[in-house]
Design a protein around this nucleic acid. Structure first.
Lengths: 161, 161
DNA sequence: AGTAGTGGCATGAAATCCCATTGTATCCCG
DNA sequence: CGGGATACAATGGGATTTCATGCCACTACT
């Protein structure tokens, strides 16, 4: 399946005292085109100190893919455990949060810690999913291209930071 | 198949002296969307020292799947026995328990023993089903990914344990 | 009568909703 | 092309509801 609507663009939003953040409108627009949900799924990013986010429809798609993979394999115990581990990570290690009428989510405390999110959240669309970063971690990460960091710096400047 | 509503997320709840636990609201929500039952089916997990839980509608779905599988290979006597064993496990080795108006179930003593559940119950959504763990067994199990254990530790911390 | 199992109610904390305010971008009309 | 008006986005604070869980009351079986 080719996902028709892709996440793109970047934004820097404030996290308030209650842990709330506005999800940028242009990302919400993609979510609502992909399905009719008004929720996003949060997970720790596999390789970065950041969060990975997507819509429930994408999660279901990912699940179906895992299922097909599992059905191909023989029912040997090792494969069984491998499957269990994957589904556990895909679902147990994620949290689904709704956004309210003004487009805000509350970042669950666990995710806030895993993503090392402070009082600023940097949103980066990366096609199938989008990421949420602590902007400082983003600038400090040596795997991020300089051109991307420039964008982050610009977003910070925009806010006078 | 595409089960529309998937179990996800994690929570740690107390088991009281009578063996009652609140099933997290976000899991109950999935159960009630899948069907109109207010009961959950408990089974020992195939490969872990934990319980597997799901809604009655899913049990029916799983049964249908077994049936289809059996019809494909009915000539094979070994397959016949395998089928008998699976259906026995799928129904005989399970218990269905209702949850009350405040969302609590009583974990039947047998299941409590099979799942080695003490006075804390760790709930983990894994898509089609969810699991109930003794958090200590979870942390001790060598098949569980470290990232998942971090989550369990976080849930314990949250409670000040 | 005592005990175990069930169901319902009460509580405190926490999550969710709703409304208000500000800033910014867009539009329209002069 | 400018200036004001309008709509939408982001954020702050307070009010309300929900959730988990302790507690008590009731029934049934011993």
């Amino acid at each position: 399946m080719a996902l028709e609507h892709l996440f793109q663009g970047s934004a820097l939003n404030a996290v308030d005292a209650k842990g709330r953040v506005s999800v940028p409108a242009f990302l919400r627009a993609v979510i609502e085109r992909r399905g009719d949900a008004r929720t996003i799924v949060l997970a720790k990013h596999d390789s970065f100190a950041a969060l990975n986010a997507y819509d429930p429809a994408y999660a279901a798609y990912k699940h179906a893919k895992l299922e097909r993979l599992a059905e191909k394999q023989e029912t040997d115990p090792a494969a069984e455990i491998d499957y269990a581990r994957r589904t556990m990570m895909a679902f147990g290690a994620t949290e689904e949060v709704p956004y309210d009428s003004s487009g805000r989510i509350v970042i669950p405390p666990m995710m806030r810690r895993k993503g090392e999110i402070g009082d600023l959240a940097l949103f980066i669309g990366v096609g199938e999913t989008f990421q949420i970063w602590n902007p400082e971690r983003f600038l400090a990460d040596k795997n991020i291209p300089d051109d991307m960091k420039d964008i982050a710096r610009f977003r910070l400047e925009e806010r006078g930071l």
